[in-house]
């Protein structure tokens, strides 16, 4: 929670996730400030769903999100790029075999 110069607590930051319709996942829409979760939901409804953009909203206080660091992208994600055997095209099959 950020503190202002007069030591007062400001409304914390919340991340907003919206499901645009049933069958789809919640997607990150943006963030906003609110005093608590209930207000964050109400504000999210006004800020991010003024035109029927959603049927469900999640809010989570931003400080509770742990994010990977792009600096570690090499060790995190590169090992996957040389594992071509995880893809169907790696395997040689005769043309007669259709639809596999």
């Amino acid at each position: 929670m950020s503190e202002s110069k007069n030591n007062k607590k400001n409304w914390p930051l919340w991340e907003v996730f919206v499901r645009s319709k049933n069958g789809l996942e919640h997607r990150h829409f943006g963030s906003l400030h609110a005093a608590d979760a209930e207000m964050a939901l109400e504000n999210a409804r006004d800020v991010y769903t003024r035109r029927n953009e959603g049927v469900s909203i999640w809010v989570v206080e931003s400080k509770n999100i742990t994010a990977s660091n792009p600096k570690d992208n090499g060790e995190l994600f590169e090992p996957a790029s040389d594992k071509v055997y995880r893809h169907p095209t790696f395997y040689d099959l005769p043309d007669e075999v259709k639809h596999m």
């Binding site: 950020s2 400001n10 943006g30 800020v47 003024r50």
Partner: peptide, 26 residues
């Protein structure tokens, strides 16, 4: 009313996008 409310919304989208660069709303 709806237009002015949209403008408030646009300001809020943009403030929160700016905050991702490490500056606070305050």
């Amino acid at each position: 009313l709806a237009k002015v409310q949209d403008e408030a919304g646009h300001g809020l989208y943009l403030y929160s996008a700016t905050e991702t660069l490490g500056i606070s709303r305050e």
